[in-house]
């Protein structure tokens, strides 16, 4: 358990986190491993746990009829996989597929939501950190949307 807390505190998402919060989060966490090709998240499934990636790369994939599987983003070590667990209806919007062997910390979403509801300071701390990731991803998604390398005439 102690080791999990240390891993969580060392993850960029939780850099500088107070030890008692790391302990609270650690209480909802466990180690996981995925083989290449394996799905970590499945489009439409209930968002029951999210992942702090430690090794390997994961692709967020949307499958569109006639266009096949479109990768919209890849995530790697030090990054967060899964944000839909934060807000109702707690469902994944993409498939997340391991491109390599992936090592991660899985965190039980319902467990962490309950702890945040009970301790708003923890909730605020988490909200700040997840909001940072969300805003950066929103900016990146918009830049992606601009298709800046295309020819616009």
């Amino acid at each position: 358990m102690e080791q999990l807390e240390q891993i969580i505190a060392a993850h960029p998402l939780f850099a500088g986190l107070r030890p008692e919060y790391a302990r609270l989060i650690g209480g909802c966490a466990h180690n996981v491993r995925f083989e290449p090709g394996q799905l970590l998240l499945r489009h439409g499934a209930s968002a029951d746990e999210f992942y702090l990636l430690r090794h390997g790369t994961v692709a967020l994939v949307l499958t569109a009829a006639g266009r096949g599987a479109l990768t919209v983003q890849t995530l790697g070590p030090g990054e967060l996989l899964g944000v839909s667990w934060l807000v109702a209806p707690y469902r994944w919007m993409y498939d997340a597929q391991a491109l390599e062997t992936v090592g991660a910390i899985a965190i039980d979403a319902a467990c962490l939501r309950a702890k945040s509801a009970a301790d708003h300071d923890l909730g605020f701390e988490l909200a700040q950190r997840f909001m940072g990731v969300l805003v950066r991803r929103l900016h990146a998604a918009r830049l992606q949307l601009l298709d800046v390398y295309g020819t616009h005439r």
């Binding site: 790369t57 692709a59 967020l60 266009r67 096949g68 599987a69 479109l70 990768t71 919209v72 983003q73 890849t74 790697g76 491109l99 990146a140 992606q144 298709d147 390398y149």
Partner: peptide, 12 residues
């Protein structure tokens, strides 16, 4: 920015 399989590099 955009990829379909079989690209295995970064997307984003």
């Amino acid at each position: 920015d955009h990829a379909t399989h079989p690209w295995h590099g970064h997307v984003g």
